[in-house]
Design a protein around this nucleic acid. Structure first.
Lengths: 114, 114
DNA sequence: CGGACTGTAAGATGTTCATCGAACACTCGG
DNA sequence: CCGAGTGTTCGATGAACATCTTACAGTCCG
């Protein structure tokens, strides 16, 4: 019957935090980690809603990966949506940029090595 | 004979890091701490070279304080100079801003609660 | 249904880091 | 030279966190 994108999954919906409710400290802490930094960067270089959690080339297991995405959600950086068995991601560019102007741009600059 | 600012103290000079040599990760990590955030903010609101390390109203002992200043120096955020028995500080606004445009401005905005 | 795939949850482990207390170094004024 | 003031270093402690392993909960396909 109902398809994935349509009806709605029976899975617990991911908890999202509005960037407006995020403190500077939380935002900086979220970005101050090599793995999460790479996630954000890869995400920024991909079309929206195209990357599932497992599609990232990071050197950690899926449990840790799940944790990192939880942190990114809590910082208002990433939005997630269930699409069949996968959970696809979107970088909340505009919303996050409205709350912290220039921060994402800064982090995404190639000049900024690790 | 030689006065403090002139001759040069016999004390170990503080180790400074050029903002140009600082990674994004280091910069974000340095700012992702409540005590250091407060130090930077207080420093930004004071004239240059007027604040000694002990003049900040932070809820930590002097040992921890010394550590935090070390981190801030390592991130290219603060410059220190010995002035008599005191060590006075300067926020490296322009230099840091050249390396990470907008980051300091963002952190100093009053709108950004802790 | 059963199995492959994807992600989350819980518990254990190890490391990093913020903090403190105490000892030390240096400067300056009596 | 001594003492007050200022800051650093060292060792230890405790908390936070990143990670793993294992177990579990969904979704989809045959």
């Amino acid at each position: 019957m109902a398809n994935q994108t349509a009806g709605g999954s029976h899975r617990a919906a991911p908890v999202h935090t509005d960037p407006e409710d995020v403190s500077v400290l939380t935002a900086l802490s979220a970005l101050a980690d090599p793995v999460r930094l790479q996630l954000v960067r890869e995400l920024a270089g991909s079309p929206v809603w195209t990357r599932s959690c497992g599609s990232f080339d990071v050197p950690v297991g899926k449990a840790a990966l799940s944790h990192h995405f939880s942190v990114l959600r809590g910082a208002g950086l990433v939005e997630q949506r269930d699409e069949g068995p996968k959970r696809v991601n979107r970088l909340r560019r505009e919303e996050f940029d409205a709350r912290f102007p220039g921060l994402l741009d800064l982090v995404l600059r190639a000049e900024n090595r690790l």
